[in-house]
Design a protein around this nucleic acid. Structure first.
Lengths: 94, 94
DNA sequence: TAAACAAGTTTATAATATAAACCAAATTTT
DNA sequence: AAAATTTGGTTTATATTATAAACTTGTTTA
């Protein structure tokens, strides 16, 4: 039987965010917004969910005087993503 | 930029249904229900959506005296699935 | 100093997935 | 042969989600 897909990752924007974070040391809100094309509101909400699930770590600080929200994937997030991709392979023929 | 994911296919159950139909000539309601583990209600609704989108063809008939709902993927569905998988590859590193 | 901008957050709305309840016909049980 | 159960679904209700719109707080810039 097909494995269930982690609902936290099976969301276009959250998947995009994780997918980007997998490849970099860290990324800030503005960068994620650019890369995903999401609205600030949507991005803010989804980052929060990923953070609350422990999939990413969020550090809010300042660069000079501008606020900066820095996101970094955690080991939990990495593992969940790997699991998700494995499960997905059952659905698409790869 | 990441390609958007066809929202009709980016749904666990609908994806499962299409994924099964891709591999067979046709499949009936009961078989799809078994294979996906979905409830009848949910499956009924999702089959309807796929059908209305033209991704699958649904033929309601009888076998002996029992009703039978037969589902078959269409060319449109096949193409959409291919597109979806391509887009997905942008999200997962494959 | 007022207007515009940056970087987000909060709230409202619309869409979705899902389960629960329901239905009709056939089959099985008593 | 009635009553109960099963089969093969559909319809309706609910809870969750995604998303956008509106708002906030502070900072530049004109």
């Amino acid at each position: 039987m097909l494995k269930p897909l982690d609902p936290l990752l099976h969301s276009e924007l959250r998947l995009a965010v994780i997918s980007i974070l997998i490849g970099v040391e860290a990324a800030d809100f503005v960068y994620l917004k650019e890369r995903t094309g999401a609205t600030s509101g949507n991005l803010s909400v989804q980052i929060d969910k990923l953070s609350k699930a422990g999939y990413i770590e969020v550090e809010k600080g300042f660069v000079g005087r501008k606020p900066r929200t820095l996101c970094k994937i955690t080991e939990i997030g990495r593992a969940a993503f790997k699991e998700y991709v494995e499960a997905l392979k059952g659905y698409i023929n790869m």
